[in-house]
Amino acid sequence: MSLMLNDVRVARGKAHIIAGLSLPPLPPGSMTALIGPNGAGKSTLIHALAGLLPARGSIRLHGQALETQPAAERSRRVGLLPQTLPQAVGLTVYELLLGGLLTLGLARDEAEQRIERVLGELRLAGLALRALATLSGGQRQLVALAQLLASEPELLLLDEPNSALDLHWQLAMIEAIRADVARRGAIAVLALHDINLALRSCERVIVLHRGACVADGAPQTVLDPALLAQVYGVAARIETCSQGQPVFILDRLIRPDEV
């Protein structure tokens, strides 16, 4: 019972972004960070897992091949929080969530209960009848998170979910995802740029570079200075702070002539 990727290849147009990616299984109840520089293939992989891009190879969720599942069934099992925020339109938060759940096939009563629970947990109930056009970018990102959590998928895919959030809400978002994953035994995969957030929130990190996995394991073990220099072109290290938390410290850029 896990997410398994074997020889996954994904292209955008004629460009092969992910070339033959295979990973050890991602178990239920786990949170995994996908990290890597711009253009490494994080969003492409997330989109391919969500079914928005065609992928070759094998993607199996709890033993079932995702690529052969009908779109409606797949969207019930796999939820996506995309990088783009919900548009600022004259649509209320409540009806965006309700429409999503009804489209996934939920009965109206159950949909209403889930919306209430999720908006309550994320402290967004006060925004329920506000139009998306009146919300800040961070609030709209939380609405997208609420939509994802309310749909209760087996696999949660989050593409840079913290890009518009302040520090408080970044941690609140991670806590909400962790609680959901633990409660339901779901699997979460987060594409992140913030390595500190990856260290803090995920027990496993997959480092992508030019469409290939260059490291996979516990963040503190995997993210050594040599790897960070190779992938990001920076001198950086992971230290343990006085509170016992691992902290990413960025020292300086590595110039091309130093490589």
Partner: peptide, 20 residues
């Protein structure tokens, strides 16, 4: 109507909800 409503929220999200 619901599919069109969700499309206003964003095409990627609508697609992920199973809307073609």
């Amino acid at each position: 109507a619901w599919a069109l409503t969700l499309l206003r929220g964003g095409a990627a999200q609508a697609e992920a909800l199973g809307i073609r």
